[in-house]
Amino acid sequence: MTPADTRRRWGLALPAVAVITLFSILPLGVVVLYSVLTPGDYGNVRWVLSGEGWFSVLFERDMFDETVSLSDAHITILFRSVGLSLATTLLTLIFGVPTAWFIATRAPRQRGFWLFLITIPFWTNLLVRTIAIQEIIRAEGVLNRILIGLGLIEQPLQMMFTNFAVLLGMAYVFLPLMVLPVYAAIEKFDFRLAEAGYDLYASRAYCLRRVILPLVRPGIIAGSILVFVPSLGAYVTPRIMGGGNSMMLGNLIEMQFGQGRNWPLGAALSITLTLLVLGALIWYTRLTTGGRRHG
C-alpha cells in the first residue's frame, strides 16, 4: 500500500475516530482517574489517591474479622454476566442467522421491507416492550394459560424474576443486533455462484462449508460482538426481568454510582469490564484480519 493510500484511509477514518476520542475515550480517562481516588461522602470523589476501589473489585475484607478474601458476590455476578451474555449470543444466533438468511434470499425489492419488519418492534420503548413480555410469562400470563390449557402443567410456572426471564428479555432486545450484520454480510452474495458450484459437483455439505460459511462468518462475528458486549454491561433488562434478584455487572456498576455512593469502585469495575471486552475484541480483530491473510 502506498503512503498516499494509507493517508487517504486515515483521512476517511479520522472523523469517526475524532468523535469517539472526544466523546468516549477522553471521558474514559476521567473514569480511570476516578478509579484511584477516594469516595466522596455523598457520591462523587475526594481528591485523595486510594487503591481501595481496585482492591474491592475482586477482594473484600471480612466485615467482622478484617481477613481478606475473594469477593464472593462480585465473582458470582461476573460469572453470571459472562454466562448469560454467552447464552444470549447463542440464542440470538439460533434465531437471528436463519432470519437474516431468509431476508437476504427474498426478492431484492422486498428485502428492505423485511428488514424494517425486524426493527419495528424495537421502535417501541425498551421498557414498554419488556412489560409486554412480562404479560406473556407472568403467572397468569398467556404462556402459562396455554400450557395449562394443553394439560402440560398443572400449576403456573414461575418464570418472572429468574435467570430465564433475563435471558429471554435480553435475547429479545438484542436480536436485531444479530440479524442486521448477518444480513448485510449475506446479502452481497451472488447465489447463482453457489448454485453453479452445487450443480457442477459439490455436495450440499461441501457447499455449506466452503461457500456459505465463509460468507456468513464476518456477519456472525460482527453480530456476536454487538450482542455479547452490550449484554455484559446490560442494565435495564436484567433489572426489570430479573426483578432485582440476580444482578449483572451493569447493575453492580450502576449501584456503585447510585445508592452505593462509591464512584471509585464503580469506575474500577467499569475499567475491568472494558478490559475484558478489549481482550475479546483484540481476539476478534486477529480472527478477521488474520483469517483473510491466509485466504
Binding site: I20, L28, I225, L226, V229, G233, I253, F257, A267, L281
Partner: peptide
C-alpha cells in the same frame, strides 16, 4: 486492503464505545 499502519488501532477505537457501560459513559 492488506493491513496498513494503524488499522488495528482504528478498529479498536471504533468499537470502544461498546465497551463502556452506559452509566459510566453518562457520568464521565
Amino acid at each position: 486492503s492488506d493491513g496498513f499502519r494503524g488499522k488495528g488501532a482504528i478498529h479498536i477505537v471504533l468499537n470502544q464505545p461498546l465497551m463502556v457501560p452506559e452509566i459510566v459513559l453518562a457520568i464521565a
